[in-house]
Simulated assay, not measured.
Amino acid sequence: MTSTYSLPQSRVPDPRDAPTLRWAILGPGWIATRFVESLHRNTSQQVVAVGSRTAARAEQFALAHGIERAHGTYDAVFTDDAVDIVYVATPHTEHRAHALAAIAAGKHVLVEKPLAVDAAGAAEIADAAGAAGVFAGEAMWTRFLPKFDVIEQVLSSGVLGPIHTVLADHGEFFTRDHRIYDPTLAGGPLLDLGTYVASFAYSVLGRPDTVYATRRPATEDIDGQISAVLSGPDGHAVLNTTILTDTPTTATVCGRDGTLTIPGPFFMPGSFAVTMRGGGTVEYDEQPGLQVDGLHYAAVDAARTIDAGRRESSIHPLSDAVATLDIIDRIRASISA
């Protein structure tokens, strides 16, 4: 690569040009708030309903976001004829059951990551959606960002040469009153934060042959930090995730001929750089962003996919979500051995 090298352009279409779907929100919490804000700010998608375990909470969320209908049960969402697709934003431990219920009611479904708490649950969702002929997807929003479309093109081009090393880290400090410390809600860093690093490693290197992991506890019931080495035929991935401290949250892909470096937080909108072994660096320049600046990309991909008559994303197919959770299952098995 020389200084005249140009990165490819993002192929992601304008989010406002996507066909409009009528969305329902299941679980009006922190991530659902940002999802709705992202849709309203960046797309023509319509959020027409919200469902919660209590009518009061659903009504409060609906009032705050200008949503027409508030349902005090989840079942009422599934039977709402005005809803095309359900965004499942309930706790991780409920993703499988709520996705399956929506699918059984004939609704398309986009499930907040992780798709389920394990690979078996994710595969069950995929099988149910296939049998019902409805769309199902995981809202692994990072994979849909324009930045990551450019990264995928760089990696696919082979310009870095054979990939030998992937490094990815995601750590964020949480106080003990946060739900991430609740073991009944699948607490700990692995599903909330570790999903990002596992998904990134899989997207670059594929399924590892071996997984070795070690842990540091946060309490008697949950992990505080997990580090893992994934080994495959083409290279190694070294991953770290923690709720005990803030970490750089960077990611790096190292090939024989060059290195791609993503500053933290690597999974959000922002820049990255490609540096060649012989010298020369080219940068992807993008304004840093937050969830509200990117969550909508998974939604509009779902809208385009459904409008085209397909039942899962070509950018982040269900097989990728299942494979990522298989890596997480194997990390769990390693630290339990």
Rank of each mutant, 00 (worst) to 15 (best):
L7K: 05
R11C: 04
V12T: 15
P13K: 03
R16L: 02
R16Y: 01
R22Y: 01
W23Q: 13
L26N: 12
Q45M: 11
Q46S: 13
G51I: 04
A58R: 04
R69M: 01
A70R: 06
T73E: 00
F78V: 00
D81L: 13
A82T: 15
V83N: 09
V86G: 10
P91K: 10
E94D: 14
E94A: 15
A97Y: 06
A99E: 04
A102L: 05
I103K: 07
A104C: 03
V109F: 11
A116I: 02
V117F: 01
I125P: 00
I125F: 02
G137K: 06
A139I: 06
T142K: 14
R143I: 03
L145N: 06
F148E: 00
V150H: 02
E152G: 15
E152T: 15
L155K: 02
G158D: 07
P162D: 14
A168S: 14
A168C: 07
A168N: 06
G171V: 11
T175W: 02
T175D: 13
D177F: 11
R179W: 06
R179N: 07
D182G: 13
D182E: 12
G188S: 03
G188T: 00
P189D: 04
L191M: 07
D192T: 14
G194H: 05
G194K: 00
T195H: 13
V197I: 15
Y202V: 07
V204M: 06
L205P: 00
G206M: 12
T210P: 08
V211Q: 09
V211C: 09
Y212R: 15
R216L: 03
P217G: 05
D234M: 05
N240H: 13
N240E: 13
T242G: 09
I243D: 10
L244A: 12
L244W: 08
T245R: 13
A251W: 02
T252W: 04
G258I: 07
G258K: 01
T259L: 11
T259E: 12
I262S: 05
F266V: 05
F266T: 07
F272D: 04
V274R: 02
G294P: 10
V300S: 08
A303P: 03
D307N: 13
R310M: 05
S314A: 15
P317S: 09
L318A: 11
S319T: 15
A321T: 09
D326G: 12
D326P: 10
D329C: 08
R330G: 01
A333L: 09
I335H: 01
S336L: 09
A337F: 03
